[in-house]
Each structure stands twice: as C-alpha cells, then as structure tokens.
Simulated scan of single mutants.
Amino acid sequence: MTRLIALLLLAGTAMLAAGCNTMAGAGEDISKGGNAITNSAEKAK
C-alpha cells in the first residue's frame, strides 16, 4: 500500500513538472495559487 501511494505521488509530480515544462514553472504556478488564496482571504476580512 505504501509503495502504491509513493508511486502515485511520484507520477503526480512528474505530470505537474511536464505540464509546466520545468520545476521552476511548477513553483511559480504554486506560488501564484497561494497568492490568490491569500488575497481572497484578505478581502474576506
């Protein structure tokens, strides 16, 4: 079971990296998502 979870996480990471073309691109995408959540939370205060 642990191997299956590890395999799925690895596959998901590979898909994310391939979709963004680079790991730097993945980091930028994740950062933008975090900023959007932060901005929404600030507006909701």
Score class of each variant (00 low, 15 high):
20 C>E: 01
11 A>P: 03
6 A>I: 15
43 K>G: 11
22 T>K: 07
43 K>A: 09
38 T>A: 13
15 M>V: 05
15 M>R: 04
24 A>G: 08
9 L>M: 11
13 T>M: 14
2 T>Q: 15
34 G>D: 09
39 N>C: 10
42 E>F: 07
37 I>H: 12
21 N>Y: 04
14 A>P: 00
38 T>M: 11
18 A>E: 04
37 I>N: 10
45 K>E: 01
26 A>K: 00
42 E>L: 01
6 A>M: 15
35 N>S: 09
16 L>G: 03
21 N>Q: 05
30 I>R: 04
19 G>A: 00
13 T>P: 03
44 A>L: 11
36 A>H: 06
24 A>L: 07
28 E>K: 09
22 T>P: 04
23 M>Q: 06
5 I>D: 14
39 N>H: 12
43 K>D: 08
6 A>S: 14
10 L>H: 13
7 L>S: 13
23 M>G: 02
45 K>A: 07
14 A>L: 11
40 S>Q: 04
22 T>G: 03
35 N>F: 03
17 A>P: 12
15 M>T: 05
19 G>D: 02
28 E>W: 02
19 G>I: 00
33 G>C: 06
27 G>H: 01
39 N>P: 04
1 M>C: 07
26 A>T: 02
34 G>W: 07
40 S>V: 03
10 L>M: 15
13 T>I: 12
25 G>I: 00
14 A>M: 12
9 L>K: 08
31 S>A: 12
18 A>I: 09
2 T>W: 14
21 N>R: 12
18 A>H: 05
17 A>K: 03
38 T>F: 13
45 K>H: 09
24 A>H: 11
28 E>D: 13
4 L>A: 10
10 L>W: 13
24 A>F: 10
1 M>Y: 07
12 G>K: 06
40 S>P: 01
43 K>W: 05
15 M>K: 08
36 A>T: 04
8 L>M: 06
17 A>L: 07
25 G>R: 02
34 G>R: 07
31 S>K: 14
26 A>V: 11
34 G>S: 06
43 K>L: 01
3 R>K: 13
45 K>C: 02
7 L>Y: 11
43 K>M: 06
10 L>C: 10
22 T>I: 10
12 G>Q: 15
9 L>Y: 08
21 N>I: 14
43 K>S: 09
15 M>L: 15
41 A>S: 02
26 A>N: 08
36 A>M: 00
25 G>M: 03
14 A>W: 14
43 K>V: 04
14 A>E: 12
4 L>D: 04
30 I>G: 09
19 G>H: 00
7 L>T: 15
13 T>Q: 12
4 L>P: 02
45 K>D: 04
40 S>K: 13
32 K>I: 13
25 G>C: 00
10 L>P: 10
43 K>N: 00
4 L>H: 10
5 I>L: 10
37 I>P: 00
6 A>C: 14
19 G>V: 03
23 M>I: 06
2 T>C: 10
39 N>D: 05
37 I>E: 14
43 K>H: 00
7 L>G: 06
6 A>R: 15
5 I>R: 11
45 K>N: 03
5 I>N: 04
24 A>K: 12
15 M>I: 06
44 A>H: 00
33 G>N: 05
38 T>R: 15
1 M>E: 01
30 I>H: 15
42 E>K: 08
20 C>W: 06
25 G>E: 00
22 T>W: 05
12 G>A: 11
